[in-house]
């Protein structure tokens, strides 16, 4: 199970990073989503992998699984879900305003002059 989880996190992270480095906004959005899945799985596994044990500490339970990472994952899921929605809206807005789907930097320096046809 450790191998499966570790491989899963690794593949998700690699795919997420690859997609995040693309030039167009849609792959970037997908890449960030994959990256957030990888993070959630990783956080989930930081409490050690235990199967079939309750997430509470009681005198009757023979073993328990650490409940804190589950709470952390829940917070992280909520935040990353909201962020994905915001990112999609922002990418859409950027595309509709600029007629361009790219995320590549054009630097703070190269903004076109408001006035055209003037020699610097």
């Amino acid at each position: 199970m450790e191998l499966l989880i570790a491989t899963g996190i690794g593949v998700l992270t690699a795919a997420g990073i690859y997609l995040t480095l693309r030039l167009r906004s849609f792959p970037v959005v997908l890449g960030l989503a994959l990256l957030s899945y990888a993070v959630n799985l990783f956080l989930f596994s930081t409490g050690r992998l235990v199967t079939g044990a309750p997430p509470i500490l009681s005198k009757d339970a023979a073993a328990y699984t650490d409940p804190l990472p589950q709470a952390l994952v829940l917070t992280a899921i909520v935040i990353s879900f909201g962020m994905s929605a915001l990112l999609v809206m922002l990418a859409l807005g950027s595309y509709l305003e600029g007629r361009d789907d790219g995320v590549e930097g054009d630097g703070a320096e190269d903004a076109p002059e408001a006035t055209s046809g003037e020699a610097r």
Binding site: G16, T20, S25, V28, L32, L35, S36, A38, V39, I79, S80, M83, L86, L87, L90, A91, S94, G98, D100, V103, G105, D106
Partner: peptide
């Protein structure tokens, strides 16, 4: 456009 870059940058940072 700059906002999109800023958000992507910070989402990677959050991850």
């Amino acid at each position: 456009r700059a906002g999109l870059q800023y958000v992507v940058m910070n989402l990677v940072g959050s991850a």
